[in-house]
Design a protein around this nucleic acid. Sequence first.
DNA 1: AAGAATGTTACATG
DNA 2: ACATGTAACATTCT
Length: 283
Amino acid sequence: MPELPEVQTLVDDLKACHTIGARISKVEVHWPALLAGSETFEFKQKLAGTVIKDIRRRGKYMIWTLAADCHMVVHLRMSGRFYFAGSGEKPAKHVHLVFELEDGRRLMYHDTRKFGRFYLVHDPREVVGRLGPEPLDKNLTSRRLAKMLSRRHRRLKPLLLDQTFIAGLGNIYTDEALWEACIHPLSIACHLSARQAASLLRAIRKVLRQGLDKRGTSLGRGLNNFALLSQQAGGNASSLKVYQRADMPCPRCGTPVKRLVVSQRSTHICPRCQKLPVDLSKS
DNA sequence: AAGAATGTTACATG
DNA sequence: ACATGTAACATTCT
C-alpha cells in the first residue's frame, strides 16, 4: 500500500506532531515476527530511553535516527499504519507495537496483514543501501534514466517496481505513470527511445508530486488501507486515471480501461493510448 | 464464497 | 549474471 507519497506523508505528519525530540520510555511488542533481525528483548531494551533525533524517508522506508549508530528502519509493506492513541485507549486488535513516549503519548503501529518490518541497525545502509535512485532527486536526469533503461532487457512495469532499479514506486503510481507517459507496461526497457525515457521520468514525477500534494492514496475504507497519522484517508484516490478503474473510460480518449496481470500484479492501461510496439522480427 | 489486495523475498528454472 | 515464474508471509474486503 504505502508507496513513496504515502510514506513521505506519514513522515511529514510525524514531524508536524513533534515526534522528533521525544524520548521513548517503553516499547510493547505483540507480534515479534515484525522485528527483522532482532529479538524482542533487545529491541525493547535498545529503544527504551532513546530520543528520536530524526525521521526521514528513503524509497518506501522510514528511517528513524535514535543515535549516530542506532537507526530504526521501518517498512510498512501492505498495511502498516501509525497513529497516536487517545488517552486510556486500549490497543486495537491489529496493533502490534506500542511506543510509549516520555511525554505520555503512545504511538501505535497497526498492521492487519502483519507484513511490516522493523530493522534496528547501526547504519541505515544495511537496509536501504541497495536501493535505486530517488525519482524526485534532481541528480536523476532523463539522460541518466535513459542509460539505466538501455542496459536492461526487461519488461518496464516489473522493472519500475524493482526497488533496486528506482526507489519508491509501487503498483498504483507505476500504472499511473505509464498511462501518463503513454507507454505500455510490457514494453522492453532497452527498446525505449530517449524521448520516451524523458517522458517517463516526467510522468513519474508528475504522479508522485500529485500523490504528495493530495497526501497519499487511500482506496476503499477498510483497515487494510493507507491512512494518515490522524487515521483519516489521503485525498489522491479521486485523481487516479487508470488504477482500479477497469472498464471505466480513459480520461484522455474515452476507451475503456483494461486490466491485465503482469508478473502477478494487476495492471491497468488504456489499450488505445498505451500501444505495445509490434515486433517486426516475429512476423 | 472464491478471488483479489497498495510489497518483498527466497527459490527454482531457463 | 540476468530474466521470469511461483509461493509464501496473514488478513480483510468485495
